[in-house]
Design a protein around this nucleic acid. Structure first.
Ligand SMILES: [Zn+2]
Ligand SMILES: [Zn+2]
Ligand SMILES: [Zn+2]
Ligand SMILES: [Zn+2]
Lengths: 148, 148
DNA sequence: TATATCAATGTTATATCATAATCCAGTAAA
DNA sequence: TTTACTGGATTATGATATAACATTGATATA
């Protein structure tokens, strides 16, 4: 969800703390990184963080990136079944891009159609794409900017 | 890759052992489950298994399911950038379905197009879909078989 | 032959990620 | 005040993965 469009009153105290930590970080965080941040607020145990993360996931506020064992705030306005991420292998950047895919609605529809045809009842899906982000690419090939 | 279409001569001894274990299992295996199987062949350490799995992944013979921390044999004939899996939350069944998605080529093309437009150079992608498989669904709603 | 090299493997130890199990505090009926 | 319930804290442990270094065996080549 867009970070400024959330009803914070539905969050428990720890969920709120974790949410704030993720919001500060502007990127994915590991559970134990969150724990480090929350230690200044009196949180001591991993369980506390994992419980809060689970709650936030159920509320659609946080997604887990399985390939990284890391968590990010959702960048959408609404809950959604299919989550899509770009993950840069170079700098670690993560970008949730489902909105762009939505603008090409055939994609999500087609996926869902093909899957349904197999009799599978999909609850949730995650597309994690690994590669090199634009930023890192332009830094690398710094010799010729336009042609090649 | 289709299991009977692989050039086994390119595999190291440990890769071959892991391959055989996965082939027997007919489903995803955790690394430590593989280790258990391979203990009867003298393998003692996790490292051995992880190294072999990494080699098999690089050769496109094995995929890792990040959401499960588990590994499966690829069911395709050819290496491929985009891997797609159905994962049943009920029975644990895993099915690699990229071939079906290929038959709807717009999907992969569209995804790649949208991603490229953002300047991202994709190396590899994995779509993991969680839900209930046909088998489990028919067992559950066992009251009406045809209509509903 | 001697010896350098390299890839695969073996071994030990440790790091990282996640959950089980149990107890405790606040609070809202009854 | 008891009772029951919910979320949270604590402790311990389980599960997953890698670092670091030693060993082997095959191949090349001086
Ligand atoms: Zn989202
Ligand atoms: Zn980058
Ligand atoms: Zn495959
Ligand atoms: Zn099933």
């Amino acid at each position: 969800m867009a970070h400024d469009n959330i009803d914070l009153s539905t969050l428990t105290k720890n969920e709120l703390l974790v949410f704030e930590a993720l919001k500060e970080s502007e990127g994915p965080m590991k559970a134990y990184d969150v724990l480090d941040v929350l230690k200044s607020h009196g949180v001591r145990a991993p369980m506390t963080v994992y419980r809060a993360l689970e709650g936030l996931e159920e509320k659609g506020i946080v997604h887990k990136l399985d390939a990284l064992n890391a968590f990010v705030l959702c960048s959408h306005d609404h809950p959604h079944q299919v989550q899509s991420f770009l993950v840069c292998s170079e700098c670690g950047m993560v970008q949730e891009i489902s909105p762009e895919l939505r603008e090409a609605p055939q994609v999500e529809d087609k996926i869902l159609g093909v899957v349904r045809a197999t009799g599978f009842q999909m609850r949730e899906a995650r597309l994690e794409m690994k590669g090199i982000c634009q930023n890192c690419t332009s830094k690398q090939g710094a010799h010729s900017t336009a042609a090649e």
